[in-house]
Write a protein that binds this DNA or RNA. Structure first.
Lengths: 163, 163
DNA sequence: GCGGCATGGTTTGTAGTACGAATCAAACTC
DNA sequence: GAGTTTGATTCGTACTACAAACCATGCCGC
């Protein structure tokens, strides 16, 4: 993920937007809360946040190392180390790619799948103490607004990055 | 925790709550997007995410090391190292606490304040590419819902943690 | 006032994470 | 077949995170 310097104001950026600033703050706070939960639950399983993400991605698919690294925005050497440690734990395995002899596929073991599912359930329960403050219709509305703001889930275009 | 289509059985309610699960997934995706932005902009300034948070907290106040560590959920030795590196960069300074000879206060330098303000502005602009997908009223509503869910900003009670 | 205990912070050791450069094997192109 | 590109690993380095040990300061009971 290359750092960029994007200082040009957006077309509407010159106008004061109190809701925009409050929204950014609320999104940041929400992000830290979610990360806090993920870090705490990850620690229970002796897993880092990034390891949790890896396990989450691989729960239902087999992925190439390169694609995994790109999806997570990590250097391939970092990806290699993460998979090393997960493999050592018996959570992941590496395999040959059927179409490219250079490529390495990564997939879950049964033990890894079980741990990922347990951790996922605990993350949901932990976050329910916050989402439970909202009523049912509010939760529905919040979900809609977030999904609208985030765009399609399968598009991994970094936010705020010039293209 | 990347969103998937799998529906896992819930241990607590027993009742399916599609909006609850979708909301957790949306919150997780939102969190990764925000973290991605913070990491990218932090890298521009050669700062880690945690360093950015520290600078954000200290922009308008002078804080004890212990309080800073507690606020961030970090070990005091970690806090010490983070402040070491920021001090070495000329962004922060340590000072004596007027009421407790053991305590060390941390505060911003002018250079640190300038950097923090620049970085903050860039984070806001970067996130505007996502929040700009919403209309004005939608942004207002999203802010309200997030703040309602998160509770008061000054309470640092960890979400989902048994007490 | 003093000893014991607690607190605040630093230092040391360790492991994981992150990136960049170097390296090697496989694939692609001409 | 040679040159280039790609995929992944290894190595070196710095940062982050925690735990244990240590030292200085503060608190409290006697």
């Amino acid at each position: 993920m290359e750092p960029t310097r994007e200082n040009e104001p957006r077309g509407d950026a010159g106008r004061p937007d109190p809701d925009g600033e409050a929204l950014v703050d609320a999104l940041a706070r929400s992000a830290f809360v979610v990360m806090g939960v993920l870090n705490r639950i990850g620690a229970q399983y002796d897993l880092s946040l990034t390891q949790l993400r890896v396990l989450g991605i691989l729960r239902d698919r087999r992925v190439r190392m390169t694609d995994l690294a790109n999806f997570l925005g990590l250097d391939k050497s970092t990806m290699s180390g993460l998979v090393d440690r997960a493999e050592r734990r018996g959570l992941l395995e590496r395999g040959r790619n059927p179409t490219d002899g250079r490529a390495v596929d990564v997939y879950m073991t049964a033990a890894g799948l079980e741990l990922a599912q347990q951790a996922h359930g605990e993350v949901r329960r932990a976050l329910a103490s916050a989402t439970g403050r909202l009523g049912k219709q509010e939760r529905h509305r919040l979900t809609q607004l977030l999904e609208h703001m985030l765009g399609p889930a399968d598009v991994q275009e970094p936010v705020g990055k010039p293209s």
